[in-house]
Design a protein around this nucleic acid. Structure first.
Lengths: 161, 161
DNA sequence: CTCAACGTACAGTATTTACAGAACGATAAA
DNA sequence: TTTATCGTTCTGTAAATACTGTACGTTGAG
């Protein structure tokens, strides 16, 4: 059971607001919020509906959306014909990784911009060279750090899934 | 003059799409796209309207939005009563910095979640400890790297504004 | 003073989005 | 076989969003 106490409600709504800032539907954030503090960690769709007082369709589609984002995963369950979900180990790292990948997309765009300004004055090219540098930096360095974090996470993780 | 050639149009639209993925209006991305390859770098609102075939109101509000995002800045101009804008040195770093700040917001949220699960089994707390670790990492390390990049940028920048 | 150009603010519109509710198909229990 | 439960899909709707066009105030030029 989760989401009865005022503190839990507040937490869930904070996660929802955060997810909204990240471009996800607020309801997806609520589902994620529940799965971050639920006991047990795995909850059925009905549990989530009851807890959030939301429609089956919303919760169902939001759960699948979160699975696609790599933040949660289906959990094996004893009761047949019932879907359980839980937060996915390393979900946040995966989330960050994908966001960084989108950002790194500007790396290529900046290069194409530099092609357009080929042969032009350096002062004109500086804008795009900054973009190139920043996002190449993000693409290379940060990717490495994420991998390092991933290894560290696996090493300290005692909760085998 | 900018935006006449097919390559430029394509570049502008790519930047627009990127900005849309980042949660900004597409038109804001178009304005930014122009200001990334324009010659001269500073363009008036009318220039932008002509180039993008968009309404004054859109371009005006999108320009102010981009100023708020720290990506562009008003440029001093000789013609009175006319607003010029140009890409802002270090704009991308500022952009990244703000995005990271939003992400780091989950750091505090995770802590609040851990308070809720205080005294509970470690297996239950692992989810939030991962969030805590990841976003504390982002908040501390990445902030430092951004600052380092910022210094490096100022050092190599020959284009004094 | 008059007029034209510029930027902003407001109103209108069309598209998208986030959700709820109903209908449907599938499956396990009775 | 019937029935109840679960998940998905489809449809509808209310709200937000992105943009256009118009109206307005302001300022420099004639």
């Amino acid at each position: 059971m989760v989401g009865k106490e005022i503190g839990e409600r507040h937490f869930i709504e904070d996660v929802a607001l955060f997810c909204e800032q990240m471009g996800l539907p607020r309801m997806a954030g609520r589902v994620l919020g529940v799965l971050l503090i639920s006991d047990p960690p795995a909850q059925s769709l009905n549990d989530l509906c009851d807890c959030l007082q939301a429609s089956k369709s919303s919760v169902s589609s939001m759960a699948r959306l979160l699975v696609g984002e790599g933040l949660i995963e289906p959990a094996p369950c004893l009761v047949p014909r019932r879907d359980y979900f839980r937060f996915r180990d390393g979900g946040w790292l995966e989330f960050m990784r994908r966001r960084m990948e989108v950002m790194a997309g500007l790396h290529a765009i900046a290069d194409r911009g530099l092609e357009i300004l080929e042969g032009r004055d350096e002062s004109l090219r500086a804008r795009l060279e900054e973009a190139h540098d920043v996002f190449e930096f993000v693409d290379s360095e940060f990717r490495g750090w994420l991998e390092w974090m991933g290894k560290r996470g696996k090493r300290t993780a005692k909760t085998g899934r």
